[in-house]
């Protein structure tokens, strides 16, 4: 005991405590971040053979239509995720915190359950439901209404929307929980005052609830946006070839994987990674700004 106290003084202890973390952090985080930027300026023919090509990878990237399609698809997906999560999360949260609704814990659990399912498994079930023949459940269902079977997974019309449906199914529960938390912390007295002033429920929603909920709305939208920009597994599971649905589902994350690990263009892949990082950093700064501003109010 005594010896220990000699080694770890109040002065040295914090360094000892944080060092295991920072050793790992330096090796597996700081170094790869720097190395990924370095790689993005190289053509990697073999692991040990890096040819410096300056901005070559970036030039090629910005000249390749597939990159723009990936950027477009990712943005479409992220915007869709953001809108759906905010609007539906808000509405469901509102309904679930309405004190006159019986049995809310059941609905709450059922909205939350998909959060627990890993993307691969969720994707497998979605594939089964979305199979393009008459034997797929969704086609069977719409067939009952006389609609011909659709190619949900492969057609340019539906493929990305199917990916979006999968992502949304898995994320709605979390967004709803945030909104529920927000609604529950709204001050009751304000509503009573509004009620006495004769405000209708719609007016209360518009002039009271939505402004009060703005921080939560901002938070959910930006968190969803950032997560959604990284989408990879959803695409990989629903379209293993990434090509069966043409360019309609390729996302930045998928394009990176494909470039690096299917076509062995590690430098090019690293450049995609750097672009993705920049997008995320900008979004994160916006998030911090938004949330920071709200804290000061």
């Amino acid at each position: 005991m005594v010896g220990k106290r000699h080694i770890l003084t109040k002065k040295t202890a914090p360094y000892v405590f944080i060092s295991p973390f920072f050793i790992l952090f330096a090796i597996f985080m700081v170094y790869p971040i720097i190395y990924s930027v370095v790689l993005s300026f190289h053509d990697v023919k073999q692991l040990s053979q890096l040819n410096f090509i300056g901005l070559g990878n970036y030039k090629l990237l910005f000249d390749t239509p597939r990159f723009y399609r990936a950027l477009y698809n990712t943005t479409y997906y992220a915007a869709g995720m953001c809108l759906l999560n905010v609007i539906l999360g808000f509405l469901i949260g509102l309904m679930l915190t309405w004190k006159h609704v019986p049995g809310t814990s059941f609905y709450r659990a059922s909205v939350f359950l998909p959060v627990l399912v890993s993307t691969v498994i969720a994707g497998a079930v979605f594939r089964l439901i979305l199979v393009d023949t008459e034997g797929g459940f969704l086609n069977y269902l719409i067939g009952r209404f006389g609609v011909p079977p659709q190619n949900w997974l492969d057609s340019p019309r539906w493929a990305l929307k199917s990916v979006l449906a999968l992502g949304f199914w898995r994320s709605l529960g979390l967004s709803t929980v945030y909104f529920i938390g927000g609604f529950q912390s709204l001050p009751d007295d304000l509503y009573e005052a509004a009620h006495i002033d004769g405000a209708s429920p719609m007016q209360q929603l518009r002039y009271l609830t939505i402004p009060l909920m703005r921080p939560i709305i901002a938070f959910v939208s930006i968190v969803t946006l950032i997560q959604a920009y990284l989408v990879f597994t959803e695409v990989f599971v629903l379209n293993p070839t990434g090509g069966s649905a043409r360019d309609t589902v390729v996302t930045l994350g998928y394009y990176l994987y494909e470039s690096a690990f299917r076509f062995f263009k590690l430098g090019y892949g690293a450049a995609i990674g750097v672009v993705m990082t920049l997008i995320i950093v900008v979004l994160s700064i916006i998030q911090l700004k938004l949330l920071g501003v709200f804290q000061n109010e």
């Binding site: 692991l47 293993p240 070839t241 990434g242 690990f261 299917r262 062995f264």
Partner: peptide
């Protein structure tokens, strides 16, 4: 292994 994954896997393993 499914065709696309097998070739991805092969490439990664070879590298």
């Amino acid at each position: 292994i499914p065709v696309e994954q097998m070739h991805d896997n092969l490439l990664i393993s070879l590298i």
